[in-house]
Design a protein around this nucleic acid. Structure first.
Lengths: 353, 353
DNA sequence: ACCACCTGCGAGAGCGCTCTCGTTCGGGTC
DNA sequence: GACCCGAACGAGAGCGCTCTCGCAGGTGGT
C-alpha cells in the first residue's frame, strides 16, 4: 500500500475545496454547494460569482465527500465475466454496452465496467460493489447459479440481470425470447418440409441453453413430431464444440435433414462438419443458428439465424435499474424481448421440397 | 435525479457502520478500524471480537468515508475509446486487460474500465477521473493529440499511457518498438531478395502509424534502397482500407514484389486484392503484417507479422502506475518493449530467389 | 401600516471513516 | 518497591461535502 501523505487526489497544489471556492466567490459554502447541485434557490449574481471562482481555481467537487452524505455515486457497474466479454467474432458486448450507455448518458450516470478474470476477482467484486462504489449493478451471462446477484440484493444493492438466472431468484432481469426464437426456427424448418431435425444445444447449466432447447421441443411438439434425445447434443457455444456435436449427430443419424444450433458460432462449426461429410447445405441438411451474429453472414452458405435485440436489452436493463434506483421497493421484474428469425441461404426454399 | 432518503447503499435495514460493529464487539471505533486496516497494534482477542461482530452484522466498510479521509480509492481506471475496445478479430483489449489486472490483483486494486462512446462521454470522463473516483488512470490508443492525459496530470492524477502520445508530452508511457518491428520486417523482405517494397501505413495522426512508417524508411535506408512516396499508401488499420490501398499501389507499381502492412487486418485486405489481381503470395509478392493478431494464422497464406508483447505492455503500464502512486514525484518515464518478427508463409523463402 | 409570505442566503450538524495523541496497564529492570 | 517502556486501546478531530433550519429582506394583500 502506498503511504498516506501521498494523497491520490489533492496532489500538486491540492485540489481546491468548496470552502475555498466559496471564499473566493464571497459567499457561504452552502450557496456554493447549491450551485453545483443545480439547486434553484440561488440568485443569478451569486451563481455567476461561484462559477467564476470555480473556473479560476479549477475546482472539481470531491466525489467521496459527496457520496458520503448523499449515498449516491452517480455511477453504475456492469459486470461481465471474462469469457463473455472477450468472445470474439460476436460483438455481443459492444452492442450491449452501447445500449446501456445510451440510457445512462442521458441521466449523466457513469458506466463502469468490471471484468472479473478469476474466482478470486469475483470474490473481491462483491466487496467492491456492496461498499458503495456504485449505485446499482448490471450483470450479464452469469454461469450456473451465481449467488452474487442475490447477495448484493440482500445488501440493498440494486441489481438487474441480462439473461434469466437459473433457478427462480427474485432478481429483476431482462432476457430475449429464447424459447420463442428456437420455436420459430423449428417451425421454419418444418415449413421447409424437414422431418428429421436435430439440435446442437448450448450448455445446459445456462438458462439460454435450457430455454433454446425448450423452444426446440415446443416447435417439434407443435408440428406433431416427437422429441428424440439422440437427435440432441450439447455444445458450449464455441465453434469447436459445434463441429464435434454435428459429427456425433451425423454418425447417429446419417439421414437427418435439418439442424438447429443454439449459437451461430456452433452453427459455423456444424457447417464445417457437414461439408466434410459431403452434405449439401441447405439441399441435404438445412441449418439454422442463433444470435444473428456477424459470423452468420460470412459463412458459406450464409446462415439463417434468430436475431436478438441486444442494444434494446442493454437499454431496457439500464431503464429497469434506473427505475429501481428511483423507487424504494421494486420487486423482481422481468422483461422478455422478442426475437426474430432471419432466413438466409442455409435454410432456404429450393432445398428438396 | 432520484431523491434523497432513498439511499443507494444503506437500504434494507441499513448497512451497519463501524460504530455498530465496535459496540457489538465491545471495543472502540478506533480499534475496530485497526482491524479492517490491517494495522498490527491489535490484540488477538480484540481482533477476534471485531471479526465476529463484523461477520454477524454483515459489515462492509463504506468506501466513500474511507476515501474521504485517506484520499485513496484502491481502484484504477482504464480508458479505452470505443473503436479500439471493440475491434474484433484482434484481441488487443482482452490481452491488455489480462496483463494489467495480473499486476493490479496482487495489490488488491480494482480495475475499472471506462469506454467513452462519444465526445460528450469523454468530456464527462475528465470530471469523473479527476473527482477522485480512481487513484490513477491508464489510457490506451488515443487518437491524435488528445489533451485529456495532460489535463489529468495537471490536476495531480497519475496517468500512464499505452502507446506513445503524439507530440512530446511529459506523460509516462509504455510502447512497443514499432520502429524496430517495422525495420525488422523490411530487413526480412530485403533478405528475401525483394527490391520493390511497398507499404500500407496506418493513420498518420496516430503514433503507431507514424512510427511504423519510420521503421519502414529506416529499413529501406539501411538496405541502400531509397524511399518512394508512391510506394506508400495510408490505411486506417481496417481490412477494407488495406484492400483499397493495395489496389492503389498495384495500379501504380504493377511490378512491386513485397508489401509491408502496418496491421494484420489491413494485410488480410491486401491479400484479397493481391489474389484478385492474380498475384501469388509469396512468389510474386511477399507480405508482412503487424500485430501478430489471430487473423495472421487464418489467412491463406498465413501471414508473417511483427509480434508485440501486449500482456507485458499491460503489466508494465500497471507497474509504472503503481510506482507513480507510491512515489511523490515520478516524471514522464517511457518504456519501450521489444517486438519480434514471426515469419510465416506469406513471406517465406522459396519465393523467387 | 401591518402581517403573511416567499426568496436567497448563512450557520451548523453530521455522513462513516482514519489517524493522531494521550492514557492505561502489564511486565521488566535496578 | 519505584521506575520505565512498549503494547493496546479510547477519545476526538476532521476529511469535503450536502442539507436542514432559521433569519433577513423584499413583495403583496388588506
Amino acid at each position: 500500500m502506498y503511504k498516506r501523505g501521498v494523497r491520490a487526489l489533492p496532489q500538486n497544489g491540492a485540489n481546491p475545496t468548496l470552502e475555498e471556492v466559496a471564499k473566493v466567490a464571497g459567499v457561504s459554502r452552502a450557496t456554493a454547494s447549491r450551485v453545483f447541485t443545480a439547486s434553484p434557490r440561488v440568485s443569478a449574481k451569486a451563481r455567476r460569482a461561484v462559477e467564476r471562482a470555480a473556473e479560476k481555481l479549477r475546482y472539481v467537487p470531491n466525489r467521496a465527500a459527496r457520496t458520503l452524505v448523499t449515498g449516491r455515486t452517480d455511477s453504475v457497474g456492469l459486470v461481465i465475466p471474462e469469457p463473455t466479454a472477450f468472445l470474439f467474432g460476436d460483438p455481443f458486448f459492444p452492442r450491449l454496452v452501447r445500449g446501456i450507455s445510451e440510457v445512462l448518458s442521458r441521466r449523466l450516470l457513469q458506466l463502469v465496467l468490471l471484468i472479473p478474470q478469476s474466482a478470486q476477482d469475483e470474490a473481491r467484486l462483491e466487496g467492491y460493489l456492496s461498499a458503495g462504489h456504485v449505485d446499482g449493478v448490471l450483470m450479464v451471462s452469469l454461469h450456473g447459479n451465481d449467488p452474487l446477484p442475490e447477495r448484493l440484493l440482500q445488501r440493498g444493492t440494486r441489481v438487474v440481470l441480462g439473461g434469466r438466472p437459473s433457478g427462480n431468484s427474485p432478481v429483476t432481469y431482462v432476457d430475449v425470447d429464447n424459447v420463442g426464437g428456437a420455436r420459430a426456427a423449428v417451425e421454419h424448418l418444418v415449413g421447409l418440409g424437414r422431418k428429421k431435425i436435430a439440435t446442437v444445444t448450448g450448455p445446459l447449466d445456462m438458462a439460454a441453453g435450457v430455454d433454446r432447447l425448450q423452444g426446440f421441443h415446443d416447435g417439434l411438439r407443435q408440428a406433431g413430431l416427437r422429441a428424440d434425445a439422440s437427435l440432441e447434443h450439447a455444445g458450449d457455444f464455441g465453434q469447436e464444440s459445434g463441429a464435434k456435436a454435428m459429427k456425433v449427430l451425423l454418425d447417429r443419424h446419417p439421414d437427418l435433414d435439418a439442424v438447429f444450433c443454439a449459437s451461430d458460432v456452433m452453427a459455423a462449426g456444424a457447417l464445417d462438419t457437414l461439408r466434410r461429410h459431403k452434405r449439401r447445405v441447405p439441399e441435404d441438411v438445412a441449418v439454422v443458428g442463433f444470435d444473428d451474429s456477424t459470423i452468420a453472414t460470412s459463412t458459406a452458405p450464409s446462415l439463417s439465424s434468430v436475431r436478438q435485440p441486444i442494444e434494446e436489452m442493454g437499454r431496457e436493463m439500464a431503464r429497469l435499474l434506473l427505475a429501481g434506483l428511483d423507487s424504494p421497493a421494486s420487486g423482481g421484474k422481468r422483461v422478455i424481448l422478442a426475437t426474430e428469425l432471419i432466413v438466409r441461404a442455409s435454410s432456404f426454399k429450393g432445398g428438396r421440397e
